[in-house]
């Protein structure tokens, strides 16, 4: 949820700008950049270690037995108990981990696809179509981004009771199917990438408005759509508060499921908890390794315009 508000509401740059050589590489006009000192590298390596250690340790404990979590100095080499832990995790009756994984995959994918579709559609309309109230609706979208809607938790629960979705998967999908941030991001991107001439040409060729969206706008939007889709997927995968409020332990998301293990009042099984935590992090790590650079670029681009 928070990631919606954490992204600076600023437009992406046109694709041409992105391919600038990365700063920090020697050469060109960047020669004037300050030199790194040994202290620089010490600070950076320390940051690297502090960032990676909790994740690595999480995985290592997941491959060992529960006592590994309380060993000092901390264990740093994976053990041979991973498959055993995975087996126990999926059989654990209080976690319903398999259901949780499936629910999270379905919810995150559905929400990501739907956000990309609806937001690009609305962003396109707000950027390129002429209609009464366009300015008003654009401002309204910006305002929705600033509203912390999760505070309406209690009435949303009551609403879910009315609809009959309490404890059901749609409850964690439908409320997230659109996002003001997404609409705004798409609007900015359309403004910068789609020339009016292209629209006119398509119009003269007899394209309907939806056809223009589908055949002209969508292909041009692909880079922005990928970033929005990934951010949305990660955010939905990570969502915890609302899932905890509306779902049940029998039908959880993966984050809810690991909280079930964490909450058990008896001796807590750290190896089991950490195995669950590893699974809850895995898809995010995969996205990070494949698309990390794009995400870095996106955050940095947003910052300049902020």
């Amino acid at each position: 949820m928070t990631a919606t508000t954490t992204q600076p509401p600023a437009p992406p740059r046109p694709p041409g700008h992105r391919r600038r050589p990365a700063r920090g590489r020697p050469g060109g006009s960047l020669r004037r950049m300050r030199q790194a000192t040994p202290l620089t590298y010490f600070a950076l390596i320390l940051t690297f270690v502090l960032s990676v250690f909790p994740l690595w340790w999480m995985f290592v404990v997941a491959t060992r037995t529960t006592t590994a979590a309380s060993q000092f100095p901390p264990v740093l080499v994976p053990g041979g108990n991973f498959l055993n832990n995975v087996g126990r995790l999926f059989e654990n009756t209080s976690a319903n981990f398999m259901t949780g994984m499936m629910n999270s995959i379905i919810a995150s994918t559905t929400v990501a696809v739907s956000v990309v579709f609806f937001c690009s559609l609305a962003g396109f309309a707000l950027a390129k179509l002429r209609f009464k109230g366009r300015a008003f609706f654009t401002v309204a979208v910006v305002i929705t981004m600033a509203v912390p809607v999760q505070i309406g938790l209690v009435p949303l629960l009551i609403l879910m009771d009315w609809i009959g979705w309490r404890g059901e998967l749609p409850a964690v999908i439908v409320p997230f199917m659109v996002s003001g941030f997404g609409v705004f991001m798409m609007r900015q991107y359309v403004l910068q990438t789609i020339p009016d001439d292209l629209m006119e040409a398509a119009r003269i060729d007899g394209c309907s408005t939806f056809r223009i969206y589908w055949s002209v706008v969508l292909p041009a939007l692909r880079p922005a759509m990928v970033v929005l889709g990934l951010l949305t997927f990660m955010q939905t995968w990570n969502e915890f508060i609302w899932a905890l409020a509306v779902l049940t332990p029998e039908n959880p998301t993966v984050q809810f499921s690991i909280q079930q293990l964490n909450q058990s009042a008896f001796a807590r099984d750290f190896a089991l908890m950490f195995t669950g935590a590893t699974f809850a992090t895995l898809p995010l790590l995969i996205i990070f390794f494949v698309f990390g650079r794009q995400l870095v670029g996106r955050i940095m681009e947003g910052a300049i315009k902020a």
Partner: peptide, 18 residues
């Protein structure tokens, strides 16, 4: 730079457990 956002992309609940 990638290291900087590695924590940001991880699961809040999982790392809170850790």
């Amino acid at each position: 730079r990638m290291t900087l956002i590695l924590p940001y992309i991880t699961s809040i609940a999982a790392l809170a457990i850790v």
